[in-house]
Amino acid sequence: MKITRKEFLKISGACLVALSGKEVLAVLDNPAEGQSSSSSAGKARKQLGMIVDTRKCAKAEGCTKCIQACNAAHNIPSFQDPDHQIKWIWEKPFDDIFSSYETQYLDASLKEEPTPVLCNHCDNPPCVRVCPTGATWKRPEDGIVMMDWHRCIGCRYCMAACPYGARSFNWVDPRPHIERLNPDFPTRTKGVVEKCTFCSERLANGQLPACVEACPEKALVFGDVNDPKSEVRQMLAKSYALRRRAELGTGPNIYYLI
């Protein structure tokens, strides 16, 4: 049993061809499941999205009800150390999230206006593309970028890939840092990445996401952006909206009315 270098190269070549053949077959078999499941084919399907009406949001000064509702519903721990913080929905200054739209004459108060940010549930999510275990994926039925914490191995590629910083890593066991445990929702364990899932557990029960429900100003509107008759589409048809870093081609689905 002696393999010459030439034979070895031949065999490896054949193996590579065979492996790639499998991928090609998979795509041919089910074109919708191929590489760009969301870009063209995905448009026709349901895509949940959210509108953040910043004018309404700004009315309630100092209000963090959406964040609190989310934190309580999802057992999100609170850490003083910014490196350890877990964020599903949080606030950022307006000027930070829309830096490319900035005019230098904007008033400082508007620049600093705290604006809620969360996972954009992109049409073409880079986090999904890099995940080596399939622990995060785009749900074909409603376009939610889901997380399977059972499968996450904590490699944090998704965090590097996400241009919105929407993902957090559990550096320590979060359980002791949760103020009030909600037994209906699991906590996470040390070593997994987490993010907003559009409250998939509430949607399954026919409820709206916790943040949407909690907003006293009704500044958050939730719905299917692919359905022309939906409330979000009606609103988007009538007013100008911004999306965070849409120029990157990720196809974010959180719209900011300004």
Partner: peptide, 17 residues
């Protein structure tokens, strides 16, 4: 099993609360 690393026992949560 590591189920309980994440999933909570409602009875225990109630007791500790």
């Amino acid at each position: 099993p590591y189920c309980w690393n994440c999933h909570l026992d409602p009875a225990q949560v109630k007791r500790s609360a």
